[in-house]
Simulated scan of single mutants.
Amino acid sequence: MTSVADLYTPADAAQARWAREVDLALRARDGMAVRAACARLARQLRGEIILGADGRPYLVRYQLAEYPRGGPRVYLHHFQQSDQAEKLHNHPWDRSVSLILAGGYREHRHRAASRLLRLGDTNEIRATDFHRVELVEADAWTVFRTGRYVGTWEFLDTRTGRRIPWRDFANRREHA
């Protein structure tokens, strides 16, 4: 099983304690303990709130680590709602990895079968993968490690195959 320690080196003693606590709870398959640990750490960090189409929080992103010279970043993600149905997006990194800490989601990828990801599962996402996340519980916590930046976020028009830059997508009325 992948551990938090496999994805990053904690920035300070508090994060190191959190990582050990979460890794122990993951091995014990104790989602409640992981949720409590994530909530405690989140209260100590500044989060970036990303709103959903309905104006409510979709995701709160807490930066755990940033490595020099354009290296990877590591975030604690708290998903609070699913991606919009049929709104597939990619990520701007050559490769990113998400470790599911609590809750879980069904991932829907373009031209691939959906799959269920739960506590302890990892999800590797390439820049060419278009997907969406559907929560299977009220929320989900993940650790997300980016790779090398290679582009920008895009949405996929599944009818035409056309890639739409995220800024253009966000400004189109029919997608709001």
Results as ranks from 00 to 15, higher is better:
M1H: 11
D6A: 13
T9V: 13
A13H: 14
A19S: 15
E21W: 10
D23F: 05
D23S: 06
L24Y: 12
L26A: 02
A28M: 15
V34T: 02
A36P: 02
A39K: 04
R40E: 12
I49N: 12
L51W: 10
G55M: 06
R61L: 13
E66F: 10
Y67L: 11
Y75E: 03
S82L: 10
D83K: 05
A85M: 15
W93N: 09
R95Q: 14
S96L: 14
S96I: 05
S96G: 14
V97C: 12
V97I: 15
S98E: 02
L99N: 01
I100A: 07
I100F: 05
L101Y: 01
A102Q: 05
R109W: 10
R109K: 15
R109I: 12
H110D: 14
R111K: 14
S114G: 09
L116K: 10
L117P: 01
R118H: 12
N123P: 11
N123Y: 09
N123I: 11
E124F: 04
I125H: 01
I125W: 01
A127P: 06
F130R: 01
F130P: 00
H131E: 10
R132E: 02
L135F: 08
L135A: 03
E137Y: 07
A138G: 14
A140M: 10
W141N: 00
W141I: 01
R145C: 04
G151V: 07
T152A: 12
W153H: 15
E154K: 05
E154V: 06
F155Y: 07
D157Y: 04
D157T: 06
D157E: 06
R159M: 09
T160M: 03
R162I: 07
P165G: 06
R167V: 11
D168S: 13
F169S: 03
N171T: 13
N171S: 12
N171M: 15
H175D: 05
A176R: 08
